[in-house]
């Protein structure tokens, strides 16, 4: 087992009276791709949001337990939330670029963090777009509106937008949501590339995708963590009945 980047201890998330996550314990390995699988409503998105304190934006949400980033608590009272969110960047399920140009979308994050030098921005934008596998498609129209991109390109643009702030962990909520197979394959390629550089956590509904892309799998059911382990192991020899049923598509 590798070092842990993020350690989750007894994490519970409540929306009002509804408990979305039931005391999750999880260590997310450094420099690997971890897939969070489970049926919709199992708490995948809640888990991802809790890892970067984005769940605080939801109404009457309550979070209990700890999340440690490099061994340090991110829910502490003196923690700068923006710093946490910069280091652990969440890419939401619906990729909505800002209604600006492609360049400005990617440069948005770096500009926020005080980078004004045009040449430096150029470089960051280029590198981020390259990493998101979008550079060749858009390099000639960087000043065009990002809203004219295709859904698949928008998804990759949002990935580039997050990469540009140089996060340490990338959280991707269902990266291929509502995408056609061709666009989805491109996004998957990007993720395969990214996991060389970043610690990746992504939620997905597709078993094939989890199998293809991830190194580790966490299976959530009704807010509880049922099983966690290397993908090959979990897929080949699931320890829990529920995991096996879910993976093989059997539901009683």
């Amino acid at each position: 087992m590798r070092d842990s980047k993020l350690v989750v201890r007894n994490l519970s998330v409540y929306y009002g009276d509804f408990q979305a996550l039931r005391s999750i314990n999880l260590s997310i390995p450094l420099g690997a791709a971890t897939a969070v699988i489970g049926s919709s409503g199992a708490g995948k998105s809640s888990l991802l949001r809790a890892l970067c304190r984005m769940n605080e934006l939801w109404d009457n949400v309550r979070t209990e337990g700890q999340v440690l980033l490099d061994g340090q608590e991110i829910y502490g009272p003196d923690v700068d939330v923006t710093e946490v969110r910069r280091r652990v960047s969440l890419i939401a399920r619906h990729p909505y670029p800002f209604p600006k140009s492609i360049f400005d979308n990617v440069a948005y994050g770096p500009r926020l963090h005080g980078i004004k030098d045009k040449r430096k921005l150029d470089e960051i934008v280029k590198r981020s777009l390259k990493q998101a596998g979008l550079w060749n498609e858009v390099k000639d129209r960087l000043q065009e509106s990002a809203l004219n991109l295709s859904p698949g390109e928008k998804a990759r643009l949002c990935i580039a937008r997050s990469i540009a702030v140089e996060p340490e962990v990338l959280l991707i909520d269902d990266p291929t949501y509502h995408l056609d197979p061709v666009s989805a394959a491109k996004v998957e390629d990007v993720i395969l590339e990214l996991k060389q550089k970043y610690t990746l956590v992504f939620a997905t509904n597709s078993m094939q995708q989890a199998g293809r892309v991830s190194d580790y799998v966490a299976f959530l059911s009704e807010g509880a963590l049922v099983e966690f382990g290397p993908t090959s192991e979990v897929f080949a020899r699931p320890k829990d009945r529920r995991t096996e049923d879910y993976i093989t598509g059997r539901f009683s």
Binding site: D70, D80, T82, K197
Partner: peptide
């Protein structure tokens, strides 16, 4: 990535 170990997660509120 390489700076991850040096940078503390706890930084005080920016101005």
């Amino acid at each position: 990535m390489e700076s991850a170990k040096e940078k503390p997660a706890v930084t005080y509120l920016k101005f």
